[in-house]
């Protein structure tokens, strides 16, 4: 199975390639990609050098241009696409139908992957994108169980890629406006969720309160780790209940499900975390590479000790294990 690894910076890209990534995904430093955070992502020159580095070591570079172009400003997204193609990207990860139509028409030879932000959650959707735009791979939304993934693979002719580790959207990706409701900035429009410039930590009595756009998302005893106030991982009150209404402060770890995902016909495993350090990326990539190598050799994959690397210290298998049903 192909291991698709995150690179928020050129250094992280080199770390991922050197640690054994089969593919690395990255984006330009602007609103054209869904991890548009300060200090992250690539200039054109950096991407060119990164592609050279990866190709020299047999790794591929996938460029994410996976936000939804702003009306009246589509030229920015079209230019990003043309530049990524010109610089030799092995595939482009797209979500917007209009941009996919443009790519299929203007860059007919370019390999296109459908971003998780397109939330194509059934074979009808995937086949539609394949038929209209010639996509070669779909990154599946994190709303599906392993059984459902297997069923999808029986009905489609293109490759599937699934997230196995890192941050977890609990909402259907690309279809969530929670962040823009509270802050005016959204994943679809701006490539950011719960953006840091709308975050405030304050001390109140014995507590630290983390707010997003003025809304209290976490309240933790002072001295205890105060989680980042990602909206859907917050602690809220509903009637008699107080707690994590949407999802606990957990991240995804589907490492133990990789053999089952392989049996379900999945071609590529994706690791989230373009915002993480190169040390983190190197550790995670080499751990997962040991699993894919073992599988390829027909050996029992090693159990990974990833708990301390997981965001918020607790891990979930998300929708894959069908616990949500």
């Amino acid at each position: 199975m192909e291991l698709v690894c995150p690179a928020g910076t050129p250094a992280a890209l080199r770390a991922a390639v050197d640690a054994g990534a089969h593919s690395v995904y990255c984006g330009f430093a602007d609103a054209t990609n869904a991890r548009n955070f300060p200090g992250l992502n690539f200039s054109r020159a950096e991407l060119e050098a990164a592609i050279d580095h990866a190709h020299a070591r047999g790794a591929k570079v996938l460029v994410a241009i996976n936000t939804f172009p702003t009306a009246g400003e589509e030229a920015i997204w079209h230019a990003a696409l043309a530049d990524a193609a010109r610089l030799g990207a092995d595939a482009i990860i797209l979500a917007d139908p209009g941009l996919l139509a443009h790519a299929a028409e203007r860059h007919p030879g370019l390999r296109l992957h459908l971003s998780v932000q397109a939330a194509a959650a059934n074979p009808d959707a995937i086949n539609l994108y394949a038929r209209h735009f010639g996509i070669r791979r779909v990154v599946l939304p994190r709303v599906l169980s392993v059984e459902e993934i297997a069923a999808i693979n029986r009905e489609i002719d293109i490759e599937t890629e699934v997230f196995v580790f890192g941050g977890l959207c609990v909402m259907a990706e690309g279809r969530c406006a929670l962040s823009s409701y509270a802050t005016g900035q959204s994943p679809n429009m701006n490539g950011v969720c719960s953006p840091p410039d709308h975050v405030a930590y304050t001390s109140e009595g014995d507590d630290t309160v983390a707010r997003l756009g003025g809304f209290a998302i976490h309240r933790t005893p002072r001295g205890a780790p105060a989680p980042y106030p990602t909206l859907c991982k917050g602690c809220f009150v509903s009637g008699e209940r107080q707690g994590h209404v949407f999802e606990d402060a957990v991240s995804l770890d589907a490492s133990r499900l990789i053999p089952a995902l392989a049996r379900a016909g999945v071609s590529a495993l994706k690791i989230e975390g373009r915002q993480r350090s190169r040390a983190y990326v190197a550790q995670i990539v080499s751990a997962f590479r040991a699993v894919t190598d073992a599988l390829a050799a027909g050996r029992e994959p090693p159990a990974l000790a990833l708990a301390r690397l997981a965001e918020g210290q607790a891990a979930t298998t998300g929708a894959y294990a069908k616990r949500w049903r």
Partner: peptide, 14 residues
């Protein structure tokens, strides 16, 4: 309103 129509390209495609 739950389909992502953010730009002219998508609108024209639809």
């Amino acid at each position: 309103p739950l389909v992502n129509v953010y730009n002219e390209g998508t609108l024209r495609w639809l």
